[in-house]
Design a protein around this nucleic acid. Structure first.
Length: 595
DNA sequence: CTAGGGTTAG
C-alpha cells in the first residue's frame, strides 16, 4: 500500500522550498527568541502555515528550544522532522553542546552517523566540546580518531577543541602534543592551552606559555588574561597580575564582567583586598559572580565585617545572592565570630531567597558555632539540622573546633569516627594524633603514627612560594636547593634569635607528630614559610609587604613566629595558606589567632 | 537553499 502511494508522489525533491523570508511563522520564531512559551506558539504558526516540513524553520525552532534550556521539547520536535539533513543535525549537535546538554549532543551525533550523514569539522568541534564537558575521555579519544580519519586533523577549530578536551581529561601531555603539532595557532588555541595548564594546577607552565605566546607575536585577548590571572592567583604572582591590569587599562580592553572578576580574584588571592575593591568599583557590569568574588575576597582575608557589609549592600541594590554567595558570607561570619549574624543569614537563605542549604553551608555553620566555642550547639546542629548522614567535611569542622577549645574527649570521638569513615585520608590521622598530643597521650600519638606508616599514608609535603622582582621562588621544608641557601639560613637564625629576645618561645608540639627529637626542632625552624619569609626580607626593601603562598595550612609555631618577625623586622607579612590569609603587622595577625 | 565553530570568572 505504502509503496503504491509513494509511486504516485512526485519525485522526492532534495528539500521543500525555503519559506519566504517574511512568512508569519518565521517572524513569530524570530520574535520568540529563546523563550519556551513563545516558541510553542511559533511552532503552532509553523504547523498551521503548512511549513512543518521546512527544515530551515524547524532547525531554527530546535536551536532556540535548546537555548531556552528546553531540551525535552527540542527532542519532541526533532522526532517529528521528516528527513533531517546535515545542516539540522550539525546545528542541533552544536546547540546541545553549547547550551549544556552534552549527553544529547553525543546522542544526536550517533544518531546522525546512523542516518548516514557524514560529519564535518563543525560536527567534530561540537562533539569534542561535549566530550570535554562530560570528561568522557574514552569517547573523546574515539571521536578524535574518527576526526583524523575524516581528514579534519588539522582544522584549527577541531584542534582547539581537542586541546581543551585533553586538558579537561587531565591529559596535559596529550593536550600539549596536539598543541605543538598545530601548524597555525590562533589566539583561541593559545588560550585553550594556557587555561588547560591553569585548571590543572600548573600555573607556572601557564605563565611560561603566555610568554611564548607573546614572543610568537599573537596578541592576547581578554580570555587570555582570564587564564593568566587565574595562574597569577594560584601563585600569588602579583607583579604579573598587576602588569595584566595595567596592560588591560592602557590598551583599551573592555573591563567585562569575567575579566573584572578574574582581577578581583587575583588581587584577593595575592592579599591585596583594596585593589580588589578598586577593580570591583570600576566595573560597569556586576553580576552575582562578581559580587560573590568581592565578598569572598573580604572573607578569606579576614575582613569579616566588610564582607557582611557588602552582602547587605548586595541585598539592597545588587543581584540575588545564590548558594555560593551564602558560602562566602557564612564563612565570613565564621571567621569573624559574627555568630548571631550567621544564624540570621542561614535562616534567611531559604525563607527569603529560596536557596536550599547544602553541604557547604552546613559545614560553615558547624565551623562558625564550633569556633565560637558553642561546641554543644554545633554538635546538636549536626545531629538535628542536617537532613542527611553528616559528611566527613562536617565532622572535620567539628574536630577543628574541639581542638581549638581543647575538648579532647569529644575530639577523640570525632576523630576516630572520621578515621573509620575515611581511612585513606592522611589529614585525619594528623588531626587525631595532634589531639592525643595535646591531651598528653604520647603512647597513642605513636600508635596513630604507626597506623599511618602501616597503611602507607604520607602527610602532604608542604611548600611555600614567594614572588620577588617578578620571579617566583619555591621553598620546601629544610630546603637547601636555593643558591643563596647559606645566607638565607644565617639570616633566619639571626631573625629567630631576635624574636627569642623579644619573648618568642617555640611551640614544639604543633603538627610535628611524625618527627622526633632533633629532626623536629630542625623542621620547625626551617618550615618552608619561614624560609620564604626570610628570603623575602633579604631581597626586598624596607616598607614592602612580604607575601607568601603556602599549599597547606600554617602551623601554630610559624604563626607565632611571624607575629614576632613583623615587629623585629618591622614589616607587614602576608601569608596565604590553604584556606585563608594571615596579615601580620606590629605583632598581631588579622585572623586574631582564630583560624 | 540556509549559518555556524574552539577559549574565560565566584
Amino acid at each position: 500500500m505504502e509503496a503504491r502511494e509513494e509511486a504516485h508522489l512526485p519525485p522526492p525533491s532534495p528539500s521543500p522550498p525555503p519559506p519566504p523570508p517574511t512568512s508569519p511563522a518565521h517572524d513569530a520564531l524570530l520574535r520568540a527568541g529563546p523563550r519556551l512559551r513563545l516558541l510553542q506558539q511559533a511552532h503552532a504558526h509553523v504547523i498551521v502555515s503548512g511549513s512543518h516540513r521546512s527544515l530551515s524553520l524547524l532547525t531554527k525552532l530546535i536551536n532556540l528550544a535548546c537555548a531556552a534550556g528546553a531540551i525535552g521539547y527540542a527532542r519532541q520536535v526533532f522526532v517529528t522532522v521528516p528527513g533531517p539533513d546535515s545542516f539540522l543535525f550539525n546545528s542541533l549537535i552544536k546547540s546541545c553542546s553549547k547550551f549544556g546538554f552534552p549527553r544529547d549532543a553525543v546522542a544526536f551525533y550517533r544518531c546522525s552517523l546512523l542516518a548516514g550523514i557524514p560529519p564535518s569539522n563543525y560536527t567534530f568541534t561540537s562533539v569534542i566540546k561535549a566530550c570535554a564537558d562530560l570528561s568522557a575521555s574514552r569517547l573523546g579519544r574515539g571521536v578524535h580518531a574518527h576526526a583524523l580519519a575524516c581528514g579534519f586533523g588539522s582544522d584549527p577549530y577541531v584542534q582547539s577543541a581537542l586541546v581543551t578536551f585533553y586538558a579537561k581529561s587531565s591529559d596535559l601531555n596529550v593536550a600539549r602534543q596536539v598543541f605543538d603539532k598545530m601548524g597555525e595557532r590562533t589566539v583561541v588555541t593559545w588560550n585553550s592551552m594556557i587555561s588547560g595548564y591553569e585548571q590543572n594546577g600548573s600555573a607556572k607552565e601557564a605563565i611560561e606559555l603566555f610568554d611564548r605566546m607573546r614572543e610568537s607575536g599573537i596578541e592576547p585577548d581578554s580570555t587570555t588574561f582570564v587564564g593568566v590571572l587565574a595562574a597569577c592567583a594560584q601563585l600569588g604572582a602579583v607583579s604579573l597580575g598587576s602588569w595584566v591590569y595595567e596592560y588591560v587599562m592602557d590598551n583599551g580592553f573592555d573591563l567585562n564582567v569575567v575579566l573584572g572578576t578574574s582581577l578581583i580574584n587575583m588581587y584577593a588571592r595575592c592579599g591585596n583586598v583594596s585593589k580588589s575593591r578598586e577593580v570591583f568599583d570600576s566595573m560597569r557590569e556586576r553580576n552575582v559572580i562578581a559580587w560573590t568574588a568581592m565578598i569572598s575576597a573580604y572573607a578569606t582575608n579576614g575582613y569579616g565585617s566588610q564582607a557582611v557589609e557588602l552582602y547587605d549592600q548586595m541585598r539592597l541594590q545588587g543581584p540575588r545572592p545564590n548558594k555560593i554567595t551564602f558560602v562566602a558570607v557564612l564563612s565570613a561570619c565564621a571567621h569573624a565570630r559574627l555568630v548571631d549574624m550567621g544564624r540570621q543569614i542561614f535562616a534567611s537563605m531559604k525563607e527569603e531567597y529560596d536557596v536550599e542549604p547544602g553541604l557547604e553551608h552546613f559545614v560553615c555553620m558547624v565551623d562558625m558555632l564550633g569556633r565560637a566555642g558553642f561546641l554543644d550547639e554545633a554538635y546538636e546542629f549536626i545531629e538535628r539540622k542536617i537532613p542527611m548522614e553528616p559528611p566527613p567535611a562536617v565532622w572535620t569542622a567539628m574536630l577543628g573546633a574541639c581542638k581549638m577549645h581543647k575538648n579532647f574527649d569529644l575530639g577523640v570521638r570525632v576523630a576516630e569516627h572520621l578515621l573509620d569513615s575515611e581511612p585513606e585520608n592522611p589529614g585525619h590521622y594528623v588531626m587525631l594524633s595532634n589531639i592525643y598530643a595535646l591531651a598528653g597521650q604520647s603512647d597513642r600519638v605513636q600508635r596513630v603514627r604507626n597506623m599511618m606508616i602501616q597503611r602507607g599514608l604520607k602527610k602532604q609535603v608542604g611548600y611555600s612560594i614567594i614572588e620577588v622582582d617578578g620571579k617566583t621562588y619555591m621553598f620546601s621544608m629544610g630546603d637547601k636547593s636555593h643558591p643563596e641557601t647559606n645566607i638565607i639560613y644565617e639570616y633566619l637564625d639571626e631573625l629567630m634569635l631576635r624574636c627569642t629576645q623579644a619573648g618568642y618561645v617555640p611551640l614544639a608540639d604543633s603538627l610535628m607528630h611524625e618527627l622526633e627529637g632533633e629532626e623536629r626542632e630542625y623542621a620547625l625552624r626551617f618550615h618552608s614559610e619561614k624560609l620564604a619569609v626570610a628570603f623575602g626580607l633579604l631581597k626586598t626593601s624596607h616598607g614592602m609587604t612580604i607575601t607568601v603562598v603556602k599549599n597547606l595550612r600554617m602551623c601554630e609555631d610559624c604563626h607565632l613566629a611571624f607575629k614576632y618577625i613583623s615587629v623585629v623586622a618591622n614589616r607587614e607579612i602576608v601569608i596565604r595558606d590553604k584556606l585563608r590569609f594571615h596579615h601580620f603587622k606590629d605583632g598581631s595577625c588579622s585572623c586574631l589567632d582564630f583560624w
